[in-house]
Design a protein around this nucleic acid. Structure first.
Lengths: 341, 341
DNA sequence: ATGAAAGCGCTAACAT
DNA sequence: ATGTTAGCGCTTTCAT
């Protein structure tokens, strides 16, 4: 099955490549192609199973019709939801999406971004690993439009959209405090990332508001992963036995903690309260339905798409915008009351 | 920021494009480029921020270094796991992956496959919606290597990998029967798909083995979706009140059923038993940890990658292979005993 | 109403 | 050890 090119179709239809091209790309009217001729070309193309080469077209037009998305973990429902919204919006604009998973690895993220760029993507959405922004600096003056989502870098002059992490964490922590908890541990994600550090700030602010001392020893964990959640919760259990509540900084971390609690036969909220950043489709059906600070992933995705597509068309490319999306506290049953005193 | 091409780099380094190309693509040795020259080119490229155009390269070499994956729903952990394994294996072979989500829509699937083909992908893995195979027939004699996964079409001469659905469903149903259930409903997926229909066969075979009559009225549902699971479970509850167990044909359907049960204040397994096809990372932490017929998504992905990559290199392109992956029954607590009599 | 031809950026014969 | 050039398949300007 050798490939059929436009030239083959043109020959079969007895016309030139230009006429063939114009007939097949809907420019027949514009170029006053006889409708009879157009029909001939279309039929030939169909008959021969012609598939235009997007590669050649992209090279010629300098447009790929492609949007690139890079996420740290596509199996995390949070990122899947973001990617989905961007995909839907892009398709509405006749663009297709290519999705890449950096697997929480900065070097892979750098490679993927480069690859996407050299595929001529017209837009690029990156949910960065967040560790460092060195490899993203070049995006500041990229030809394609770029949006950073979630673990963004405010120092870069690139449009960003992320949740209001500080306020979300503040409210989550305050919820715990209101229910009588004073010794609250954080199962954090990757330190140094905006999302992690802002959540820490929110947590501290809530403690301070109630004059509860902050203790470094109540913070554990190093990645936004199930494994980190598992290790961190074990560490807290071992070293801070008087903690009555834990605050998991994302859904993966929460799963790790859940695994640890199950292993130690600890039940929630009787033995320990748990509050989590990020909701999950199954969160309400868990043995103890999770109380969460819910990020609106769909809104994050929609906003990212909006910025991306508006930058693409209009001239406000160089104006980098910043969007914050509110976080919603959803009370379920994983937080219990502590009798004061 | 106009784009820097190889020509610019070559000029800056004071060499020809060919020398520049060879220096940058690691062919310096092969072409006996002076290492001094090579360094010059590399430095110029770095300094100027040269990004080679993959598009031009693909057009010239007729190779894209791209593998395409199409799945019906990337936010389903089952498909995410498959995609991940294929991605990992592909990257090991220096290929990058472009992932597309058909959102359970055949027409979108057809478009995506076409798009990927015209981007010159060297390999294509499709997890079809499964409704019809018309749009996939042309893949039988495609130039790139193709593998179908999950809801495959055995009638096509394309390599396929899928689970042993019949045996999985047989064992799931038998488990229910052994625990004393006789009136067992199926919350099915999309009828007509291989995975659905083979599971129905397994279910019927298990009933027959115990001389339990099969009733069409105990089958409900029409899609592999949460919504279908929600509707189907409602229908069964309303029309088949004496059913003591339900068999959900995938994890999404199970979530829908869970939602329905919660709404009706039905608890599992006290009021009703539930068994599910597909495991889920959170399945064990649910209020009633799910007993499941677990598909080995990682193996499915690995096998698909293996077939894909072996077809690509070797000459056994035209030999289409079929792989079946075993399904494992995992007993947790969502299935309870019914006293006989 | 259609054709010829240039050229997108790269690689790889084929020269030196 | 390096340069020249053809050409991948398409779109589009410029002719006619």
């Amino acid at each position: 099955m050798e490939k059929v090119t436009l030239l083959h179709v043109a020959e079969a239809a007895g016309v030139s490549v230009s006429t063939a091209s114009r007939s097949l790309t809907g420019k027949a009217r514009q170029y006053r192609i006889r409708s009879e001729t157009e029909r001939l070309v279309r039929e030939a193309a169909d008959r021969m199973g012609f598939e235009p080469s997007h590669v050649a077209r992209s090279l010629r037009t300098q447009r790929s019709g492609l949007i690139g998305i890079v996420v740290p973990d596509i199996s995390n429902p949070f990122f899947a939801a973001i990617a989905r919204e961007i995909t839907i919006a892009s398709e509405e604009h006749g663009l297709s999406v290519i999705l890449a998973d950096s697997r929480e690895t900065t070097s892979r993220e750098a490679t993927l971004v480069q690859q996407l760029q050299s595929r001529q993507v017209e837009g690029l959405v990156v949910c960065p690993v967040g560790e460092t922004d060195r490899h993203l600096r070049q995006l500041e003056n990229a030809t394609e439009s770029v949006v950073l989502v979630d673990r963004v870098f405010p120092s870069l002059s690139i449009s960003t959209v992320t949740s209001d992490h500080e306020s979300g964490a503040f409210r989550a922590t305050r919820e715990l405090i209101r229910r009588g908890h004073r010794k609250i541990a954080c199962l954090q994600g990757r330190p140094g990332t905006l999302t992690n550090d802002e959540r820490i700030i929110g947590y501290k602010r809530a403690l301070a508001a109630e004059r509860i001392a902050f203790r470094t020893s109540r913070i554990a964990g190093d990645h936004f992963s199930e494994d980190s959640g598992y290790r961190a919760s074990g560490q807290i259990l071992d070293t801070q036995p008087r903690c009555t509540a834990m605050f998991a900084f994302n859904n993966q971390i929460a799963i790790g903690a859940l695994r640890r609690f199950a292993e130690r036969r600890l039940s929630i909220p009787q033995d320990l309260s748990l509050i989590t950043f990020d909701d999950h489709p199954l969160a309400e059906f868990l043995a103890s339905p999770l109380t969460v600070a819910r990020q609106d992933a769909a809104s994050l995705g929609k906003m990212a798409a909006k910025l991306l597509l508006s930058q693409r068309s209009s001239s406000n490319r160089r104006r980098s915008q910043t969007v914050r999306v509110p976080v919603q506290l959803i009370r379920r049953q994983s937080v219990g009351d502590i009798k004061s005193g």
